[in-house]
Simulated assay, not measured.
Amino acid sequence: MLALMIGAFASTGAAQAQSAAAEGQKLAFDRSKGNCLTCHVIKGGNLPGSLGPELIDIKSKYPNRADLVAIITDETLRNPLTVMPPFGRNRILTEKEIEAVVDFLQTL
């Protein structure tokens, strides 16, 4: 019985993570929200920009999830000369939306 409950919980957790990543992808590709494609090449995205780095292999580049959240929230704290918009500070994305975008980026 306990094994079934643990298996069901693990399955639910994986489904929720996949759902959050799918929501994050929508936000990242949405030209009126995350708008990541304006500056970044992202697999599966149309008409990407080239101002920022290509977003690939993100989980190995940023193994600490909090670093990636901080970059999206307000990269000017780390790099005052960045052109990366402060999505959190300017309330372009909510904390929940930033978490979803990070979920998506970590799948790349």
Rank of each mutant, 00 (worst) to 15 (best):
Q16Y: 06
A66D: 15
R91T: 11
A70C: 05
Q16S: 06
H40W: 01
R31P: 12
A28Y: 00
L51H: 00
G34P: 06
H40D: 01
A3Q: 05
Q25G: 09
L47H: 12
S11M: 12
K61H: 11
A8L: 10
A17H: 06
L108S: 10
L108E: 07
S11V: 05
A17D: 11
P86I: 04
G52Q: 01
L108M: 10
D30V: 12
T12N: 06
T82W: 07
I92C: 01
L81W: 06
A3H: 03
I71F: 02
L55V: 12
G34Q: 04
N90F: 11
R65A: 10
F104P: 08
P63T: 04
F29L: 14
R78M: 14
D67R: 02
R78H: 13
R31F: 05
L27W: 02
N35S: 11
A70W: 03
N46I: 13
G44I: 13
L47T: 13
Q25L: 10
E95T: 12
V69T: 06
Q25A: 14
S32I: 10
G44W: 07
G7R: 01
A3S: 06
T38A: 09
E95H: 04
K96L: 04
L37R: 09
P53M: 04
D67T: 13
T12V: 11
A70F: 06
V101I: 10
R65H: 13
I6D: 00
E99P: 03
E23H: 05
V102C: 08
N64Y: 06
A28Q: 00
R78K: 15
L51E: 03
T38G: 03
K59C: 02
I58Y: 00
P48L: 09
E95C: 00
L37D: 03
A15K: 04
R91K: 15
M84I: 14
N46P: 02
T73Q: 12
L105P: 07
A8K: 01
E99Q: 15
D67Y: 01
A100I: 02
A10Q: 04
Y62K: 00
L68S: 06
V83S: 13
F9L: 13
